[in-house]
Design a protein around this nucleic acid. Structure first.
Lengths: 266, 266
DNA sequence: CGCATTGTCGCCCGATCATGCATGATCTGG
DNA sequence: CCAGATCATGCATGATCGGGCGACAATGCG
Protein backbone atom coordinates (compact mmCIF):
# COMPACT_ATOMS: atom_id res chain seq x y z
CA UNK A 1 0.00 0.00 0.00
CA UNK A 2 2.45 2.54 1.19
CA UNK A 3 4.97 0.93 -1.04
CA UNK A 4 7.15 3.63 -2.44
CA UNK A 5 10.77 2.69 -2.66
CA UNK A 6 12.96 3.74 0.15
CA UNK A 7 16.65 4.08 0.01
CA UNK A 8 18.32 1.42 2.04
CA UNK A 9 19.32 3.65 4.91
CA UNK A 10 15.96 5.32 5.04
CA UNK A 11 14.25 2.11 5.91
CA UNK A 12 16.46 1.47 8.88
CA UNK A 13 16.07 5.04 10.04
CA UNK A 14 12.37 4.59 9.85
CA UNK A 15 12.48 1.40 11.81
CA UNK A 16 14.59 3.08 14.41
CA UNK A 17 12.20 5.95 14.71
CA UNK A 18 9.35 3.55 15.00
CA UNK A 19 11.20 1.76 17.74
CA UNK A 20 11.86 4.92 19.64
CA UNK A 21 8.28 5.85 19.36
CA UNK A 22 6.51 2.75 20.48
CA UNK A 23 9.27 0.62 21.92
CA UNK A 24 8.56 -2.33 19.69
CA UNK A 25 8.27 -3.36 16.11
CA UNK A 26 6.85 -6.49 14.56
CA UNK A 27 8.68 -7.90 11.58
CA UNK A 28 5.61 -8.91 9.64
CA UNK A 29 3.96 -5.55 10.13
CA UNK A 30 6.99 -3.63 8.98
CA UNK A 31 7.35 -5.81 5.94
CA UNK A 32 3.84 -5.11 4.80
CA UNK A 33 3.97 -1.47 5.66
CA UNK A 34 7.23 -0.78 3.90
CA UNK A 35 6.46 -2.97 0.96
CA UNK A 36 9.46 -5.23 1.30
CA UNK A 37 9.78 -8.87 2.15
CA UNK A 38 9.94 -10.06 5.69
CA UNK A 39 13.41 -11.37 5.05
CA UNK A 40 14.68 -7.92 4.36
CA UNK A 41 13.20 -6.62 7.54
CA UNK A 42 14.73 -9.46 9.45
CA UNK A 43 18.09 -8.65 7.93
CA UNK A 44 17.70 -5.04 8.98
CA UNK A 45 16.71 -6.01 12.46
CA UNK A 46 19.56 -8.43 12.76
CA UNK A 47 21.98 -5.80 11.64
CA UNK A 48 20.60 -3.19 13.96
CA UNK A 49 20.69 -5.57 16.86
CA UNK A 50 24.32 -6.33 16.07
CA UNK A 51 25.18 -2.66 16.46
CA UNK A 52 23.18 -2.44 19.61
CA UNK A 53 20.37 -0.32 18.26
CA UNK A 54 17.64 -2.70 19.25
CA UNK A 55 17.01 -5.94 20.98
CA UNK A 56 15.99 -8.78 18.77
CA UNK A 57 13.14 -10.98 19.92
CA UNK A 58 11.04 -13.64 18.33
CA UNK A 59 8.66 -11.94 15.94
CA UNK A 60 10.21 -8.51 15.92
CA UNK A 61 12.43 -6.28 17.99
CA UNK A 62 12.31 -4.12 21.08
CA UNK A 63 13.99 -0.95 22.16
CA UNK A 64 17.27 -1.61 23.89
CA UNK A 65 16.32 0.06 27.10
CA UNK A 66 13.93 -2.14 28.97
CA UNK A 67 10.45 -1.36 27.83
CA UNK A 68 9.53 0.96 30.63
CA UNK A 69 10.84 4.45 30.70
CA UNK A 70 14.45 4.11 31.62
CA UNK A 71 13.63 6.92 33.97
CA UNK A 72 12.46 4.51 36.58
CA UNK A 73 15.75 2.74 36.58
CA UNK A 74 17.86 5.82 36.48
CA UNK A 75 16.17 6.97 39.63
CA UNK A 76 17.39 3.97 41.52
CA UNK A 77 20.92 4.30 40.23
CA UNK A 78 23.45 6.53 41.86
CA UNK A 79 21.26 7.80 44.64
CA UNK A 80 23.87 9.23 46.95
CA UNK A 81 25.99 10.86 44.35
CA UNK A 82 22.99 12.55 42.85
CA UNK A 83 21.77 13.67 46.24
CA UNK A 84 25.05 15.43 46.85
CA UNK A 85 24.92 17.01 43.44
CA UNK A 86 21.35 18.07 44.04
CA UNK A 87 22.09 19.72 47.31
CA UNK A 88 24.79 21.85 45.76
CA UNK A 89 22.53 22.74 42.88
CA UNK A 90 19.65 23.67 45.14
CA UNK A 91 21.93 26.01 47.04
CA UNK A 92 22.63 27.91 43.83
CA UNK A 93 19.01 28.80 43.24
CA UNK A 94 18.15 32.22 44.66
CA UNK A 95 15.21 32.20 47.06
CA UNK A 96 11.98 33.48 45.63
CA UNK A 97 12.86 32.87 42.03
CA UNK A 98 10.76 31.25 39.37
CA UNK A 99 12.40 28.00 38.35
CA UNK A 100 11.86 25.51 35.60
CA UNK A 101 12.98 22.01 36.50
CA UNK A 102 13.41 19.98 33.36
CA UNK A 103 12.82 16.23 33.36
CA UNK A 104 15.64 13.88 34.39
CA UNK A 105 16.68 11.80 37.30
CA UNK A 106 19.26 14.30 38.51
CA UNK A 107 16.67 17.01 38.48
CA UNK A 108 14.35 14.79 40.45
CA UNK A 109 17.02 14.68 43.10
CA UNK A 110 17.17 18.45 43.00
CA UNK A 111 13.41 18.65 43.50
CA UNK A 112 13.83 16.57 46.62
CA UNK A 113 16.50 18.92 47.87
CA UNK A 114 14.46 22.09 47.50
CA UNK A 115 13.10 23.70 50.60
CA UNK A 116 9.55 25.02 50.77
CA UNK A 117 10.89 27.87 52.88
CA UNK A 118 12.78 29.35 49.96
CA UNK A 119 9.62 30.68 48.40
CA UNK A 120 10.28 29.24 45.01
CA UNK A 121 7.78 28.71 42.26
CA UNK A 122 8.77 25.70 40.27
CA UNK A 123 7.47 24.56 36.92
CA UNK A 124 8.24 21.13 35.55
CA UNK A 125 7.23 18.87 32.72
CA UNK A 126 8.02 15.66 34.61
CA UNK A 127 5.30 14.09 36.73
CA UNK A 128 7.77 12.46 39.09
CA UNK A 129 9.32 15.83 39.80
CA UNK A 130 5.96 17.51 40.23
CA UNK A 131 4.94 14.82 42.69
CA UNK A 132 8.14 15.27 44.66
CA UNK A 133 7.72 19.04 44.79
CA UNK A 134 4.16 18.69 45.90
CA UNK A 135 5.21 16.37 48.67
CA UNK A 136 7.73 18.87 49.87
CA UNK A 137 5.23 21.69 49.79
CA UNK A 138 6.79 23.70 47.01
CA UNK A 139 4.49 25.74 44.78
CA UNK A 140 4.31 23.75 41.59
CA UNK A 141 3.23 24.41 38.05
CA UNK A 142 2.79 21.37 35.93
CA UNK A 143 3.43 21.43 32.22
CA UNK A 144 0.98 19.25 30.34
CA UNK A 145 1.14 17.15 27.25
CA UNK A 146 1.75 13.63 26.07
CA UNK A 147 4.49 12.12 28.14
CA UNK A 148 7.54 10.65 26.49
CA UNK A 149 8.44 7.58 28.49
CA UNK A 150 12.13 7.84 27.74
CA UNK A 151 12.44 11.43 28.75
CA UNK A 152 10.05 10.95 31.65
CA UNK A 153 8.21 14.15 30.90
CA UNK A 154 6.03 16.01 28.46
CA UNK A 155 7.99 17.36 25.51
CA UNK A 156 5.59 17.71 22.62
CA UNK A 157 3.96 20.69 20.99
CA UNK A 158 1.32 21.05 23.64
CA UNK A 159 4.00 21.03 26.32
CA UNK A 160 5.60 23.98 24.57
CA UNK A 161 2.32 25.79 24.40
CA UNK A 162 1.87 25.19 28.09
CA UNK A 163 5.31 26.46 28.91
CA UNK A 164 5.02 29.46 26.68
CA UNK A 165 3.75 31.91 29.24
CA UNK A 166 6.34 30.97 31.82
CA UNK A 167 9.59 32.89 31.80
CA UNK A 168 11.74 31.37 34.49
CA UNK A 169 14.58 33.14 36.25
CA UNK A 170 16.45 29.87 36.35
CA UNK A 171 16.16 26.92 34.04
CA UNK A 172 17.61 23.73 35.46
CA UNK A 173 18.26 21.79 32.32
CA UNK A 174 18.41 18.02 32.26
CA UNK A 175 21.40 17.09 30.17
CA UNK A 176 22.22 13.87 28.37
CA UNK A 177 25.74 15.00 27.68
CA UNK A 178 27.87 18.09 27.89
CA UNK A 179 30.83 18.71 25.69
CA UNK A 180 33.06 21.60 24.79
CA UNK A 181 32.26 21.45 21.12
CA UNK A 182 28.68 20.24 21.06
CA UNK A 183 27.59 22.12 24.16
CA UNK A 184 24.60 20.70 25.98
CA UNK A 185 23.16 17.75 24.10
CA UNK A 186 20.06 15.55 24.21
CA UNK A 187 19.20 12.03 23.15
CA UNK A 188 16.29 12.76 20.87
CA UNK A 189 15.39 15.43 18.42
CA UNK A 190 12.16 16.37 20.11
CA UNK A 191 13.76 16.55 23.48
CA UNK A 192 16.45 18.85 22.16
CA UNK A 193 13.88 21.05 20.53
CA UNK A 194 11.96 21.34 23.75
CA UNK A 195 15.00 22.17 25.80
CA UNK A 196 16.07 24.75 23.29
CA UNK A 197 12.66 26.32 23.47
CA UNK A 198 12.90 26.52 27.24
CA UNK A 199 16.39 27.88 27.17
CA UNK A 200 15.37 30.71 24.89
CA UNK A 201 12.85 31.92 27.43
CA UNK A 202 14.99 31.66 30.52
CA UNK A 203 17.14 34.23 32.20
CA UNK A 204 19.83 31.86 33.45
CA UNK A 205 20.77 28.26 32.81
CA UNK A 206 21.91 25.81 35.42
CA UNK A 207 23.00 22.24 34.84
CA UNK A 208 23.93 19.49 37.27
CA UNK A 209 26.13 16.90 35.65
CA UNK A 210 27.21 13.49 36.83
CA UNK A 211 30.65 12.31 35.90
CA UNK A 212 29.62 10.01 33.10
CA UNK A 213 28.00 12.89 31.24
CA UNK A 214 31.05 15.09 31.22
CA UNK A 215 32.68 15.37 27.82
CA UNK A 216 30.17 13.07 26.21
CA UNK A 217 27.88 14.29 23.50
CA UNK A 218 24.45 12.95 22.66
CA UNK A 219 23.28 13.26 19.05
CA UNK A 220 21.34 16.52 19.29
CA UNK A 221 22.66 19.88 20.34
CA UNK A 222 20.59 22.07 22.62
CA UNK A 223 22.63 25.14 23.46
CA UNK A 224 26.31 26.07 23.31
CA UNK A 225 28.29 25.99 26.51
CA UNK A 226 28.52 29.75 26.62
CA UNK A 227 24.81 29.92 27.28
CA UNK A 228 25.13 28.02 30.57
CA UNK A 229 25.56 30.19 33.65
CA UNK A 230 26.17 27.63 36.38
CA UNK A 231 27.26 24.03 36.38
CA UNK A 232 27.39 21.64 39.31
CA UNK A 233 29.74 18.71 39.01
CA UNK A 234 30.62 15.87 41.32
CA UNK A 235 33.25 16.15 43.99
CA UNK A 236 35.57 13.77 42.20
CA UNK A 237 35.10 15.08 38.67
CA UNK A 238 38.30 15.37 36.71
CA UNK A 239 39.99 18.69 37.01
CA UNK A 240 40.44 18.97 33.25
CA UNK A 241 36.69 18.79 32.79
CA UNK A 242 36.08 21.46 35.35
CA UNK A 243 38.65 23.69 33.68
CA UNK A 244 37.00 23.21 30.33
CA UNK A 245 33.68 24.35 31.70
CA UNK A 246 35.21 27.32 33.47
CA UNK A 247 37.04 28.27 30.29
CA UNK A 248 33.68 28.52 28.56
CA UNK A 249 32.66 31.10 31.10
CA UNK A 250 30.58 28.78 33.24
CA UNK A 251 30.62 29.27 36.96
CA UNK A 252 31.43 25.77 38.07
CA UNK A 253 30.70 24.38 41.51
CA UNK A 254 31.80 21.08 42.97
CA UNK A 255 29.37 19.09 45.08
CA UNK A 256 30.43 17.77 48.44
CA UNK A 257 31.74 14.26 48.84
CA UNK A 258 28.69 12.03 49.03
CA UNK A 259 30.32 9.41 51.23
CA UNK A 260 29.44 11.56 54.22
CA UNK A 261 26.41 11.12 56.44
CA UNK A 262 23.13 12.67 55.43
CA UNK A 263 20.18 10.96 54.02
CA UNK A 264 17.47 12.92 52.36
CA UNK A 265 14.23 13.19 54.22
CA UNK A 266 12.03 10.45 53.15
CA UNK B 1 -8.95 -10.77 26.55
CA UNK B 2 -7.57 -7.67 28.02
CA UNK B 3 -4.48 -7.29 25.99
CA UNK B 4 -3.29 -7.38 22.46
CA UNK B 5 -0.47 -9.60 21.44
CA UNK B 6 2.74 -8.91 23.15
CA UNK B 7 6.05 -9.67 21.63
CA UNK B 8 7.75 -12.46 23.42
CA UNK B 9 10.35 -10.36 25.15
CA UNK B 10 7.86 -7.75 26.16
CA UNK B 11 5.99 -10.18 28.29
CA UNK B 12 9.03 -10.92 30.39
CA UNK B 13 9.86 -7.26 30.69
CA UNK B 14 6.38 -6.68 31.87
CA UNK B 15 6.54 -9.42 34.41
CA UNK B 16 9.79 -8.05 35.68
CA UNK B 17 8.36 -4.60 36.06
CA UNK B 18 5.40 -6.02 37.84
CA UNK B 19 7.74 -7.81 40.16
CA UNK B 20 9.72 -4.71 40.91
CA UNK B 21 6.57 -2.85 41.61
CA UNK B 22 4.70 -5.12 43.92
CA UNK B 23 7.28 -7.70 44.89
CA UNK B 24 5.24 -10.65 43.77
CA UNK B 25 3.37 -12.05 40.83
CA UNK B 26 0.82 -14.83 40.63
CA UNK B 27 1.07 -17.15 37.66
CA UNK B 28 -2.64 -17.55 37.12
CA UNK B 29 -3.26 -13.83 37.25
CA UNK B 30 -0.52 -13.07 34.79
CA UNK B 31 -1.79 -15.71 32.44
CA UNK B 32 -5.23 -14.25 32.36
CA UNK B 33 -4.06 -10.70 32.17
CA UNK B 34 -1.61 -11.27 29.37
CA UNK B 35 -3.84 -13.61 27.47
CA UNK B 36 -1.53 -16.58 27.38
CA UNK B 37 -1.66 -19.99 28.97
CA UNK B 38 -0.42 -20.59 32.43
CA UNK B 39 2.23 -22.89 31.06
CA UNK B 40 3.79 -20.05 29.16
CA UNK B 41 3.91 -17.88 32.22
CA UNK B 42 5.41 -20.69 34.20
CA UNK B 43 8.05 -21.15 31.55
CA UNK B 44 8.84 -17.45 31.67
CA UNK B 45 9.07 -17.51 35.41
CA UNK B 46 11.28 -20.55 35.36
CA UNK B 47 13.55 -18.93 32.85
CA UNK B 48 13.73 -15.69 34.76
CA UNK B 49 14.44 -17.52 37.95
CA UNK B 50 17.25 -19.36 36.21
CA UNK B 51 18.89 -16.05 35.37
CA UNK B 52 18.37 -14.80 38.85
CA UNK B 53 15.73 -12.24 38.04
CA UNK B 54 13.18 -13.60 40.42
CA UNK B 55 12.59 -16.27 42.97
CA UNK B 56 10.22 -19.02 42.04
CA UNK B 57 7.60 -20.09 44.55
CA UNK B 58 4.51 -22.18 44.49
CA UNK B 59 1.82 -20.22 42.67
CA UNK B 60 3.97 -17.46 41.30
CA UNK B 61 7.25 -15.69 41.92
CA UNK B 62 8.78 -13.15 44.22
CA UNK B 63 11.34 -10.43 43.86
CA UNK B 64 14.84 -11.62 44.57
CA UNK B 65 15.48 -9.24 47.43
CA UNK B 66 12.41 -9.33 49.59
CA UNK B 67 13.91 -6.53 51.62
CA UNK B 68 13.21 -3.26 49.88
CA UNK B 69 10.05 -2.79 47.93
CA UNK B 70 7.43 -0.22 47.12
CA UNK B 71 5.03 -2.70 48.61
CA UNK B 72 5.38 -0.81 51.85
CA UNK B 73 4.74 2.37 50.02
CA UNK B 74 1.66 0.88 48.53
CA UNK B 75 0.29 -0.07 51.87
CA UNK B 76 1.09 3.30 53.30
CA UNK B 77 -0.41 5.11 50.36
CA UNK B 78 -3.81 3.59 50.54
CA UNK B 79 -3.87 0.29 52.26
CA UNK B 80 -5.23 -2.99 51.13
CA UNK B 81 -8.73 -1.66 51.02
CA UNK B 82 -7.97 0.83 48.33
CA UNK B 83 -5.97 -1.68 46.40
CA UNK B 84 -8.96 -3.99 46.32
CA UNK B 85 -11.22 -1.14 45.30
CA UNK B 86 -8.77 -0.16 42.62
CA UNK B 87 -8.55 -3.63 41.19
CA UNK B 88 -12.30 -3.82 40.79
CA UNK B 89 -12.40 -0.37 39.23
CA UNK B 90 -9.62 -1.17 36.79
CA UNK B 91 -11.52 -4.23 35.66
CA UNK B 92 -14.46 -2.03 34.68
CA UNK B 93 -12.46 0.02 32.22
CA UNK B 94 -12.74 -1.35 28.70
CA UNK B 95 -9.40 -2.10 27.05
CA UNK B 96 -8.27 0.48 24.55
CA UNK B 97 -10.39 3.29 25.85
CA UNK B 98 -9.34 6.85 26.54
CA UNK B 99 -9.53 7.47 30.23
CA UNK B 100 -9.29 10.51 32.44
CA UNK B 101 -8.03 9.75 35.93
CA UNK B 102 -8.90 12.58 38.24
CA UNK B 103 -6.70 13.40 41.23
CA UNK B 104 -7.18 11.54 44.49
CA UNK B 105 -5.60 8.81 46.52
CA UNK B 106 -8.11 6.20 45.45
CA UNK B 107 -7.47 7.06 41.85
CA UNK B 108 -3.77 6.75 42.46
CA UNK B 109 -4.44 3.20 43.56
CA UNK B 110 -6.37 2.65 40.35
CA UNK B 111 -3.43 3.92 38.34
CA UNK B 112 -1.28 1.32 40.01
CA UNK B 113 -3.77 -1.36 39.13
CA UNK B 114 -3.92 -0.59 35.41
CA UNK B 115 -2.24 -2.95 33.03
CA UNK B 116 -0.08 -1.64 30.22
CA UNK B 117 -1.35 -4.52 28.14
CA UNK B 118 -4.83 -3.08 28.03
CA UNK B 119 -3.87 -0.43 25.53
CA UNK B 120 -5.33 2.45 27.45
CA UNK B 121 -4.55 6.10 26.99
CA UNK B 122 -4.82 7.84 30.31
CA UNK B 123 -4.93 11.53 30.99
CA UNK B 124 -4.57 12.92 34.48
CA UNK B 125 -4.11 16.22 36.25
CA UNK B 126 -2.30 14.69 39.21
CA UNK B 127 1.48 14.34 39.05
CA UNK B 128 1.55 11.39 41.41
CA UNK B 129 -0.84 9.52 39.17
CA UNK B 130 1.07 10.46 36.04
CA UNK B 131 4.27 9.19 37.66
CA UNK B 132 2.62 5.92 38.61
CA UNK B 133 1.24 5.41 35.11
CA UNK B 134 4.60 6.13 33.60
CA UNK B 135 6.19 3.57 35.85
CA UNK B 136 3.68 1.01 34.77
CA UNK B 137 4.24 1.77 31.10
CA UNK B 138 0.81 3.16 30.35
CA UNK B 139 0.50 5.87 27.71
CA UNK B 140 0.03 9.04 29.69
CA UNK B 141 -1.16 12.54 28.96
CA UNK B 142 -0.43 15.07 31.59
CA UNK B 143 -2.73 17.99 32.22
CA UNK B 144 -0.82 21.10 33.09
CA UNK B 145 -1.46 24.08 35.28
CA UNK B 146 -0.84 25.39 38.75
CA UNK B 147 -1.15 22.54 41.19
CA UNK B 148 -3.51 22.83 44.06
CA UNK B 149 -1.80 21.17 47.02
CA UNK B 150 -5.05 20.16 48.64
CA UNK B 151 -6.42 18.51 45.57
CA UNK B 152 -3.04 17.12 44.58
CA UNK B 153 -3.52 18.09 40.98
CA UNK B 154 -3.95 20.92 38.52
CA UNK B 155 -7.44 22.37 38.60
CA UNK B 156 -7.22 25.95 37.45
CA UNK B 157 -8.20 27.66 34.24
CA UNK B 158 -5.14 26.51 32.37
CA UNK B 159 -5.83 22.95 33.43
CA UNK B 160 -9.23 23.26 31.83
CA UNK B 161 -7.74 24.66 28.69
CA UNK B 162 -5.36 21.73 28.61
CA UNK B 163 -8.11 19.21 29.11
CA UNK B 164 -10.37 20.82 26.60
CA UNK B 165 -9.37 18.80 23.61
CA UNK B 166 -9.56 15.49 25.40
CA UNK B 167 -12.90 13.74 25.32
CA UNK B 168 -12.48 10.61 27.40
CA UNK B 169 -14.55 7.48 27.06
CA UNK B 170 -14.36 7.04 30.78
CA UNK B 171 -13.87 9.66 33.45
CA UNK B 172 -12.77 8.24 36.76
CA UNK B 173 -13.84 10.96 39.10
CA UNK B 174 -12.22 11.51 42.46
CA UNK B 175 -14.98 12.08 44.95
CA UNK B 176 -14.92 13.74 48.32
CA UNK B 177 -18.40 12.55 49.13
CA UNK B 178 -21.34 10.88 47.45
CA UNK B 179 -24.88 11.33 48.58
CA UNK B 180 -28.35 10.65 47.28
CA UNK B 181 -29.41 14.26 47.38
CA UNK B 182 -26.22 16.16 46.72
CA UNK B 183 -24.82 13.68 44.24
CA UNK B 184 -21.07 13.70 43.82
CA UNK B 185 -19.52 16.48 45.87
CA UNK B 186 -16.14 18.17 46.27
CA UNK B 187 -14.34 20.06 49.00
CA UNK B 188 -13.64 23.28 47.18
CA UNK B 189 -15.41 25.44 44.69
CA UNK B 190 -12.66 25.32 42.12
CA UNK B 191 -12.31 21.61 42.38
CA UNK B 192 -16.03 21.14 41.83
CA UNK B 193 -15.95 23.40 38.85
CA UNK B 194 -13.09 21.47 37.34
CA UNK B 195 -14.75 18.12 37.88
CA UNK B 196 -18.00 19.41 36.40
CA UNK B 197 -16.09 20.58 33.38
CA UNK B 198 -14.54 17.17 32.93
CA UNK B 199 -17.82 15.39 33.45
CA UNK B 200 -19.48 17.40 30.72
CA UNK B 201 -16.95 16.17 28.19
CA UNK B 202 -16.92 12.51 29.13
CA UNK B 203 -18.91 9.66 27.76
CA UNK B 204 -19.21 7.71 31.00
CA UNK B 205 -18.52 8.41 34.65
CA UNK B 206 -16.96 5.96 37.05
CA UNK B 207 -16.36 6.50 40.75
CA UNK B 208 -14.59 4.34 43.33
CA UNK B 209 -15.75 5.13 46.81
CA UNK B 210 -14.39 4.10 50.17
CA UNK B 211 -16.82 3.50 52.96
CA UNK B 212 -16.28 6.77 54.75
CA UNK B 213 -17.35 8.71 51.69
CA UNK B 214 -20.66 6.98 51.26
CA UNK B 215 -23.62 9.13 52.19
CA UNK B 216 -21.48 12.06 53.11
CA UNK B 217 -21.65 15.31 51.25
CA UNK B 218 -18.92 17.85 50.81
CA UNK B 219 -19.92 21.50 50.34
CA UNK B 220 -19.93 21.72 46.56
CA UNK B 221 -21.98 19.66 44.16
CA UNK B 222 -20.37 18.30 41.03
CA UNK B 223 -22.92 16.15 39.26
CA UNK B 224 -26.14 14.41 40.27
CA UNK B 225 -26.04 10.72 40.96
CA UNK B 226 -27.92 9.94 37.78
CA UNK B 227 -24.94 11.08 35.76
CA UNK B 228 -22.70 8.35 37.20
CA UNK B 229 -22.59 5.14 35.21
CA UNK B 230 -20.52 2.85 37.42
CA UNK B 231 -19.63 2.91 41.07
CA UNK B 232 -17.20 0.64 42.87
CA UNK B 233 -17.70 0.23 46.59
CA UNK B 234 -15.93 -1.77 49.22
CA UNK B 235 -16.76 -5.36 49.95
CA UNK B 236 -18.19 -4.54 53.32
CA UNK B 237 -20.12 -1.43 52.37
CA UNK B 238 -23.58 -1.25 53.87
CA UNK B 239 -26.27 -2.78 51.77
CA UNK B 240 -28.49 0.27 52.17
CA UNK B 241 -25.85 2.43 50.58
CA UNK B 242 -25.44 0.09 47.68
CA UNK B 243 -29.18 0.02 47.19
CA UNK B 244 -29.33 3.80 47.15
CA UNK B 245 -26.75 3.96 44.41
CA UNK B 246 -28.46 1.27 42.41
CA UNK B 247 -31.77 3.06 42.80
CA UNK B 248 -30.23 6.08 41.15
CA UNK B 249 -29.49 3.95 38.12
CA UNK B 250 -25.82 3.40 38.91
CA UNK B 251 -24.32 0.07 38.08
CA UNK B 252 -22.73 -0.76 41.38
CA UNK B 253 -19.90 -3.22 41.85
CA UNK B 254 -18.49 -4.50 45.09
CA UNK B 255 -14.75 -4.93 45.40
CA UNK B 256 -13.34 -8.20 46.63
CA UNK B 257 -12.54 -8.64 50.27
CA UNK B 258 -8.98 -7.41 50.66
CA UNK B 259 -8.18 -10.10 53.16
CA UNK B 260 -9.55 -12.72 50.81
CA UNK B 261 -6.64 -12.06 48.56
CA UNK B 262 -4.61 -15.18 48.48
CA UNK B 263 -1.18 -14.97 50.00
CA UNK B 264 1.86 -16.53 48.55
CA UNK B 265 4.05 -18.63 50.78
CA UNK B 266 7.16 -16.96 51.89
C1' DC C 1 30.84 0.53 -24.67
C1' DG C 2 31.16 -4.06 -22.55
C1' DC C 3 32.12 -6.67 -18.60
C1' DA C 4 33.07 -7.81 -13.82
C1' DT C 5 32.05 -6.64 -9.10
C1' DT C 6 29.34 -5.40 -5.45
C1' DG C 7 25.29 -5.01 -2.88
C1' DT C 8 20.33 -5.34 -2.21
C1' DC C 9 16.52 -8.06 -2.27
C1' DG C 10 13.10 -11.94 -2.82
C1' DC C 11 12.35 -16.76 -2.44
C1' DC C 12 13.03 -21.36 -0.60
C1' DC C 13 14.20 -24.91 2.90
C1' DG C 14 15.68 -27.15 6.98
C1' DA C 15 16.29 -25.75 11.80
C1' DT C 16 14.70 -23.51 15.69
C1' DC C 17 11.48 -21.57 18.72
C1' DA C 18 7.13 -20.40 21.27
C1' DT C 19 3.02 -22.14 22.75
C1' DG C 20 -0.93 -25.00 24.24
C1' DC C 21 -2.39 -29.42 25.72
C1' DA C 22 -2.02 -33.91 28.07
C1' DT C 23 0.01 -36.62 31.64
C1' DG C 24 1.81 -37.92 35.79
C1' DA C 25 4.49 -36.07 39.79
C1' DT C 26 4.55 -32.78 43.55
C1' DC C 27 3.06 -29.47 46.66
C1' DT C 28 -0.28 -27.09 49.94
C1' DG C 29 -3.95 -26.31 53.28
C1' DG C 30 -6.99 -28.33 56.14
C1' DC D 1 -3.90 -38.12 54.99
C1' DC D 2 -6.99 -36.21 51.41
C1' DA D 3 -8.57 -33.11 47.79
C1' DG D 4 -7.39 -29.70 44.91
C1' DA D 5 -4.09 -26.76 42.96
C1' DT D 6 0.32 -26.27 40.85
C1' DC D 7 4.17 -28.02 38.60
C1' DA D 8 7.58 -30.40 35.12
C1' DT D 9 7.86 -32.90 31.07
C1' DG D 10 6.98 -34.55 26.45
C1' DC D 11 4.72 -33.85 22.29
C1' DA D 12 2.25 -31.60 18.33
C1' DT D 13 1.75 -27.49 15.71
C1' DG D 14 2.35 -23.42 13.61
C1' DA D 15 5.23 -19.32 13.21
C1' DT D 16 9.71 -17.48 12.78
C1' DC D 17 14.56 -17.73 11.80
C1' DG D 18 18.99 -17.99 9.27
C1' DG D 19 21.53 -19.23 5.36
C1' DG D 20 21.99 -20.21 0.62
C1' DC D 21 20.79 -19.23 -4.04
C1' DG D 22 19.62 -16.44 -7.92
C1' DA D 23 17.72 -11.99 -9.99
C1' DC D 24 18.54 -7.40 -10.72
C1' DA D 25 20.48 -2.75 -10.55
C1' DA D 26 24.27 0.35 -9.66
C1' DT D 27 29.05 1.06 -9.88
C1' DG D 28 33.83 0.64 -11.32
C1' DC D 29 37.24 -0.61 -14.65
C1' DG D 30 39.34 -1.51 -18.84
Amino acid sequence: MTGQDLLLGERQDLIRRRLDLSGRVIAAELAQELGVSEDTIRRDLREMAASGLCRRVYGGALRVSPAAGPITERIAAGGERKAALAEAAAALIPPGSAVFLDAGSTNLAIARALSPASGLTVATNAPAIAAALLERGVATIQIGGLIDPRAGGAIGASAMRDAECFRPDVLVLGVCGIDREAGVTAESFEEAEYKRFLAAKSRALLVAVTNEKLSTAAPYSVVPLARVAHAVIEADAEEAEAAALAAAGIETVRAKQPSAHRDLPR
